[in-house]
Amino acid sequence: MYRLRTSLAALLLLAATLPVEARDYHYSDAHLHYVDFFQESDGMKSLLQAMDKGRIDHVMISGIPVAKKWHEDEPKRPRYYAGDDAAAYWYSATDVLVAAAVKQLSDAQRQRFHPFLSGFNPNDKNADAHIRRMLELDPGLWQGIGEVFTRHDDLTALIDGDTPRANNEAMGRIYHLAAEYDLPVLLHSNITSKRERNPLYLQEVEEPLRNHPHVRFIWAHAGSSMEIHRHQTKMDFLLSTLDRLLGSYPNLYIDLSWSVLEPYLLDADGKPDRRWLTLVERYPERFMLGSDVVGRFDGLGDYLSAYDPFLDALPEAVARKVARDNFLAVLPMKHRSAKEQAQVQADRPGR
């Protein structure tokens, strides 16, 4: 008996010291811009190569709804929208560039791309009519709306015209159109300003969630931004606010793109935050990953594999939903197989 117990103890010790088998994730990128703020891109060949290298099966692909102006008084062309004080302006041709890039692909390649319309002014009550025309020009091409820029750090101040709000009348008309066409909406709306340590702008997001229950909203960066973090490091109210919203609005989905990874999902030592793990486990179908790259695709896979420590701390089934499947589940029903449609119809919140 002693020998048996000793052998059992040795086996348990050995098992505890063996490395855990690494999970081989495949990803969906739920937030990718084909062009940058000057409407330029590395091109579709480069994007496909980066997707294959990074095990990225699917991408949401959109343009950038504004173009950065190279002002007459600036001797050097800026490299980013924040490069100087010159304005940006709404740029509808961004959708033409995305459509042209997707249309050049083979049928098999196109199955991996999910184009979202973004080239409209969210302050203009004509915007829904423009979006409808774009949908009718290319039936079946567009699978979502966004990324819609509303409150967006210093970019908001640079864009010509009034500050867009997620709950203004023009956006309300767009949400009705999104429900009509079964299109998800990827919305960028900061939860607060750079200096206010409270959810100053939360109502601008919560009101559409409440008033448009049949629209699937993907909240870009969970309302966070790197510019907010530069001023206040970390929003202590973000986790509790998301918990309440997810419990109250089954049509809300969260894009965990890069400004959420740190300092929220992972701490300064790269370890997962247990509170965020608990939140994702509580709502396992409601979170997705995004790179938020803008026209440049080198290292694309690294942006998504950076989430692996957080994913590895989740139950494997939940981790694979977050890494790949949850984004696919918010797409229009007609873009899924009959079997997938039946499953999504049964599981999808807000339907």
Rank of each mutant, 00 (worst) to 15 (best):
L311T: 05
F287E: 07
D255L: 03
L11C: 11
A222I: 00
Q111D: 09
S248N: 13
A166F: 12
R296N: 15
D292K: 06
Q39K: 03
H231W: 08
M333I: 01
E169F: 12
H71W: 12
G63D: 11
Q104F: 03
Q341G: 00
W219N: 03
H229T: 09
A93N: 06
F38Y: 13
F149K: 03
D308N: 14
Y91V: 00
H188S: 04
A329C: 06
W90H: 12
P263S: 06
A129R: 12
E316T: 10
H71A: 15
L186K: 02
G247N: 09
L266H: 10
E204G: 08
R286P: 07
Y34A: 04
A329H: 08
A86N: 04
A306Y: 11
H221C: 07
G140A: 06
G146L: 04
V330P: 00
L4D: 15
R348T: 05
P139S: 10
K53S: 14
E204Y: 06
A50L: 05
R351V: 02
F38T: 01
K234Y: 15
G270D: 07
S337R: 02
S259A: 14
D73R: 04
P208M: 04
N167E: 03
Q343G: 02
A67H: 11
A10L: 14
W70A: 00
